[in-house]
Amino acid sequence: MKSWVILLIILGFLLGSCTVIAGDVSHWPASLVAVIAIVLLKIGNDRVKLLAWPMEFLLAAGVTMIVINLARLAFVPLQY
């Protein structure tokens, strides 16, 4: 149970950081996909124990959030 609270803190930090950097909530479609991927990563990591909790998982979650948001930006047309 404690690890899920830490996961919520990690997700809150990542989503808050994305909102601050973007200046609005336009990142939410990609961030929702990233949150789903991170939760699935947590479930898989609880079973396999591939990543150390919480530091290595935090790194993997941050990279997942960045990569998915950058992939979204590659497909969104630029606004001039």
Score class of each variant (00 low, 15 high):
residue 48 V to L: 09
residue 14 L to A: 07
residue 59 L to V: 15
residue 13 F to R: 05
residue 9 I to F: 12
residue 8 L to W: 06
residue 16 G to M: 03
residue 41 L to S: 00
residue 14 L to S: 07
residue 19 T to Q: 11
residue 22 A to Y: 15
residue 42 K to H: 10
residue 19 T to W: 11
residue 8 L to V: 02
residue 6 I to Y: 09
residue 32 L to A: 15
residue 24 D to L: 07
residue 13 F to Y: 11
residue 36 I to P: 02
residue 27 H to Y: 13
residue 18 C to S: 13
residue 45 N to P: 04
residue 36 I to S: 11
residue 32 L to W: 10
residue 35 V to T: 14
residue 76 V to R: 11
residue 52 A to K: 15
residue 29 P to W: 00
residue 19 T to A: 13
residue 10 I to N: 05
residue 80 Y to G: 14
residue 51 L to D: 00
residue 54 P to K: 00
residue 10 I to E: 10
residue 63 V to N: 00
residue 49 K to H: 09
residue 13 F to P: 03
residue 21 I to L: 13
residue 74 A to L: 15
residue 4 W to E: 07
residue 4 W to V: 07
residue 54 P to H: 02
residue 38 I to N: 05
residue 20 V to N: 08
residue 21 I to A: 13
residue 53 W to F: 07
residue 65 M to I: 03
residue 70 L to N: 12
residue 44 G to P: 03
residue 42 K to A: 13
residue 22 A to S: 15
residue 62 G to H: 04
residue 72 R to S: 14
residue 21 I to Q: 13
residue 49 K to A: 10
residue 11 L to N: 07
residue 41 L to P: 00
residue 62 G to S: 08
residue 16 G to S: 10
residue 5 V to Y: 06
residue 67 V to I: 13
residue 49 K to I: 11
residue 50 L to H: 05
residue 60 A to Q: 01
residue 14 L to N: 05
residue 27 H to L: 08
residue 38 I to V: 12
residue 36 I to Y: 08
residue 34 A to L: 02
residue 4 W to F: 11
residue 11 L to R: 00
residue 52 A to W: 15
residue 50 L to I: 11
residue 67 V to P: 04
residue 2 K to N: 13
residue 53 W to Y: 03
residue 26 S to P: 00
residue 19 T to G: 11
residue 52 A to N: 15
residue 41 L to Y: 01
residue 58 L to Q: 01
residue 77 P to E: 03
residue 30 A to W: 00
residue 16 G to H: 09
residue 43 I to Y: 09
residue 12 G to P: 05
residue 79 Q to T: 15
residue 27 H to D: 05
residue 1 M to D: 04
residue 4 W to H: 07
residue 19 T to H: 09
residue 51 L to S: 03
residue 54 P to L: 06
residue 73 L to A: 12
residue 9 I to S: 10
residue 55 M to T: 10
residue 17 S to A: 13
residue 74 A to F: 14
residue 76 V to A: 01
residue 40 L to N: 08
residue 18 C to Y: 15
residue 4 W to N: 02
residue 59 L to M: 10
residue 57 F to I: 06
residue 24 D to Q: 08
residue 20 V to T: 13
residue 7 L to W: 04
residue 65 M to S: 08
residue 74 A to W: 13
residue 55 M to L: 14
residue 69 N to Y: 07
